[in-house]
Design a protein around this nucleic acid. Structure first.
Lengths: 341, 341
DNA sequence: CAGATTCTGCTTTACGTACCTCAAAACTCC
DNA sequence: GGAGTTTTGAGGTACGTAAAGCAGAATCTG
């Protein structure tokens, strides 16, 4: 049988109330007695029963998620996963609040953060856009000892407890390796398509990609990035133009938002099988494109995993329980036609 | 505030005892009354508080894991993950019991299963080796309503509740695509190395691999499988012999146990960069081989994820709670040098 | 050594559920 | 309508912890 507070009290030769004071870091216990209690805890291997504790505490986890409003399909997927998580959250005394802010608008994000009632919220997860106001807002939360995790997009690490997302530099290098290897010994040009280079994640992927291509695949040359601004029509026009102009494009890297446009253009051409295409984010469209041979590989971060991980991390900080590091590491997943989930 | 049994009783106009009888499927309640209570539950959106329930029930999850004793490094990794999980398991009233049986010995496995005291064990996870005796042993567990999940290696689905592991046919096809694509336009032979073809998983991977190569990469020809029998020395000898004999080997697929031997042989040769190598299971050795350019890709199943998933699935069956399907799906992970975790 | 202060013990109530007992009420059957 | 059975109600205790109040003990201060 697992030891309880009663056993600890007995073992330490103190009363239950004293054990309680030590466990919950309440004042009014001499250092010496604290040590005696802690020694007893260690000796017995006592571990607090969190279920019972939370029951007694009437603890409810009020978690706030701040995400950009329906920008690209990845963010939509993230939102969907959040709603999924919401369905199950009642089971473990968790209330998920989802607030949407204007996409990549640091001020809107800061305003949302400033509006948080620190007495009502027990943890915050946000898709970060960094700015001075955002940093100040986050500092307020940390002062109030409210756990904060960043999701998908990070801020500097003094302002949050954890980052839940992939290493975008490694992701860019991965894309470079895949395109380079899939192209084999062919040489030629590589087209780059993105939503906007203002987004830090995309900028990082691009820089890492270009560097890795330059280092390892001398036969390939990166063309300037096409910025589709999250608009499929713009992407379509720009890419079609480019492919008409350049006749030795052997690879294409779709860095972020913009898969729809890329797929449309490639499908309308007869030479799409000659271009090695690597894109980001697994969605219904990109799965289909993999299946049809339009995309050769898709790099993905599991939005569902990220949501669950963020929830676990916040709760762990609230309950002061340990975290299983491996479980919380977000993988840079590579999908080809054959290993689709 | 979340509704409790008291609220349900009030809403249904019955006593607490009756609600309790309905919730816990005890007898002695008229069908009509049951319906009234259930209606009230639905109306209020009542969800049983599992923490409180388990506290009252003094529930302890006694989970038994049966794994093959230290055969290859993947199984060792699995065991390590189990021990990791054990460290945390005390936090949630879970006791993990790990029993090791002789590798791929169906009788030993069946004996272990037959020896289970069904009054003491609340759930079982096993790395399965199928046989009639094993099936009978599993049938006994299911009759006793003890949840069973298979880990890494499956039995036919009438004998277990879930399978936690990858689709080995898809994994074999994935390996074929990677080797085919990485080889580019080159043609030549592909060597296959495995522990033993008696293991179902490896046999499946191999068959799928050969089929996919035959379908999609006509320039490649699969050589007969080298069976290293989980012995690095044997693998070394066989592979070295083969590479001396055949001079147009462009690819190598390490299907299962045997990475150590493969790495040794390739490292000792000057031409290892000309051979595209895809292996299974991410370990310290295979990571190093990826890093050194000896391996081009590694296909992995996350042992830690599998262990945690098995635990969650067993508990979900025990508590009769829903499962998040996506969270429990084991991915066929592809690693190259750039996306190592 | 009295008085103040700090520390500790004892006890109670509560959280939401499970499970038990005993008695009362509502049915069934003849 | 009485005997028997089934269904329901009322109430209690328990699980392990939190949090509180109050009294008594130990320690410190002057």
């Amino acid at each position: 049988m697992r030891p309880t507070v009663h056993d600890v009290a007995g073992e330490a030769g103190v009363s239950l109330a004293t054990v309680d004071r030590v466990l919950n870091r309440r004042s009014g216990v001499r250092a010496e007695t604290v040590a005696r209690v802690n020694a007893a805890i260690l000796r017995l291997g006592y571990v607090r029963d969190i279920s019972a504790a939370n029951l007694a505490k009437q603890r409810v986890y009020n978690l706030l998620f701040i995400v950009p409003e329906g920008s690209n399909s990845f963010m939509l997927g993230l939102e969907q996963e959040l709603n999924q998580a919401k369905l199950y959250s009642v089971l473990d005394r968790t209330h998920l609040d989802i607030r949407k802010v204007k996409t990549f608008d640091a001020d809107a994000l800061a305003t949302a953060l400033d509006g948080i009632d620190i007495t009502q919220v027990s943890g915050v997860a946000l898709v970060a856009t960094e700015s001075e106001r955002v940093r100040r807002a986050l500092a307020r939360l940390r002062e109030a000892d409210i756990p904060v995790v960043t999701l998908v997009s990070d801020v500097s690490d003094a302002y949050r407890d954890h980052y839940v997302g992939i290493d975008n530099i490694a992701a860019g290098r991965t894309a470079a390796s895949l395109i380079g290897r899939f192209c084999g010994r062919r040489s030629g040009k590589v087209a780059l398509v993105a939503g906007s280079m203002l987004v830090k994640d995309h900028a990082e992927r691009r820089a890492a990609f270009e560097q890795a291509i330059g280092e390892a695949f001398r036969g390939l040359e990166c063309l300037p990035v096409l910025e589709g601004r999250d608009d499929a029509a713009v992407t379509r026009t720009l890419l079609a133009e480019l492919l008409d102009r350049e006749h030795d494009v052997v690879g294409l890297y779709s860095i972020g938002a913009g898969n729809r446009g890329v797929i449309d253009v490639l499908m309308s051409r007869t030479d799409y099988r000659d271009i090695t295409v690597v894109a980001h984010e697994l969605t219904d469209h990109s799965k289909q494109a993999l299946h049809d041979g339009i995309f050769d590989a898709v790099i993905n971060q599991d939005a569902g995993h990220e949501v669950r991980s963020a929830i676990r991390l916040l709760k762990a900080r609230i309950d002061d329980t340990p975290v299983i590091a491996n479980q919380e590491a977000i993988r840079i997943e590579i999908y080809i036609r054959d290993n689709l989930p």
